[in-house]
């Protein structure tokens, strides 16, 4: 097991290198460059050239990439083209916000999504099943942006209970995490329902019931545990996505997370910043996947890693 983890961790290196190379080339194929954006509309070509030189963009692309790798070897992601602050520092300033929001959203989603899915599966085609499936449908189809704004109007403007945006207190995190969770909860509820339905029709569940076990016991111990694998997969994937930042939610609620950072950086062609953030996203995603794989083994003892 320990060896497996080490092996997986080592294998992240070529993956990240691949990502970085692809990104490096693709970014520079895009029209426009950070120097032009930084210089603004009124600058003369000479001023743009000065900035281009300062950013090292006037060097051949393979030299730029080599320099990037050399820095990366020292865990240095370079400096942002826009702010000239170390990329690591800029990411570090926002990462806790993103992680906080992602953890809260995924916890809320599991807390409501899994029980809802179970209940819906236990009573298929009942009113409660319809309620769960239809609200899940609404949750998935509702634009996050719109939901966020509606929450702002109701809880912030009309009731004045919660702040509309920003950070600072636990109150600030309520609306954005609810908004994010609404989307994820729907996914989880649907996945739980279908997975549970499948398991509940298995022979061993019938056997458990025939043994005279209590229904609650049958559902939680025998059915749920076996239905968990696909649910964990979905939760893991969604969590990985949330760690990549939730641009729309962050924008609506003025939440300073990684999502907005990456979008702003792309719009300004801030190459070092984009490279840095994408690499961090990649790393987080790989780690989440690894953890998910390890949880599989805990939940299902038949799964073993050598």
């Amino acid at each position: 097991m320990f060896q497996y983890v080490i092996k997986r961790l080592i294998s992240t290196v070529p993956v990240l290198l691949g990502i970085s190379l692809l990104l490096f080339v693709m970014l520079r194929m895009l029209p426009g460059d950070p120097a032009q954006v930084l210089a603004g509309q009124m600058a003369t070509p000479e001023e743009v050239e000065v900035i281009r030189h300062q950013l090292g963009l006037d060097r051949p692309i393979h030299v730029q990439y080599a320099l990037f790798l050399a820095r990366l070897a020292h865990l240095d992601l370079g400096r942002s083209a826009r702010t000239q602050n170390p990329v690591i520092q800029e990411i570090w300033a926002r990462l806790p916000n993103t992680v906080l929001l992602a953890v809260l959203a995924i916890s809320l989603a599991c807390l409501f999504g899994i029980p809802a899915g179970i209940v819906a599966a236990v009573r298929p085609n009942s009113w409660i099943d319809y309620l769960v499936t239809s609200s899940a449908l609404v949750g998935i189809s509702m634009p996050v942006f719109w939901l966020g704004l509606m929450l702002v109007v109701v809880f912030s403007v009309l009731l004045q209970w919660l702040p509309a945006g920003g950070t600072g207190s636990w109150k600030h995190v309520v609306l954005p995490s609810l908004t994010l969770a609404s989307f994820v909860v729907a996914f989880i509820a649907r996945m739980t329902r279908s997975s549970m339905l499948e398991v509940l029709s298995q022979d061993y569940v019938t056997t458990a019931r025939a043994k005279g076990l209590k229904e609650l016991w049958v559902i939680t111990k025998h059915a749920l545990k076996n239905a968990l694998i696909p649910i964990i997969t979905v939760v893991g994937l969604q969590f990985g996505m949330l760690l990549g930042g939730a641009v729309l939610t962050e924008t609506v609620f003025a939440w300073p997370g990684l999502g907005r950072l990456i979008v702003d950086s792309i719009l300004a062609r801030d190459y070092p910043m984009i490279q840095g953030t994408i690499l961090v996203f990649g790393l987080l995603y790989i780690l989440v996947n690894l953890v998910v794989d390890l949880i599989y083994a805990v939940v299902d003892p038949r799964i073993r890693y050598e």
């Binding site: 702002v152 403007v157 702040p163 509309a164 945006g165 924008t251």
Partner: peptide, 17 residues
């Protein structure tokens, strides 16, 4: 305060934030 979305900015003004 950096609030990128204009609708949120307006809501904050209305709510006195």
């Amino acid at each position: 305060k950096i609030v990128p979305e204009t609708a949120t900015r307006e809501a904050m003004l209305r709510a006195g934030q």
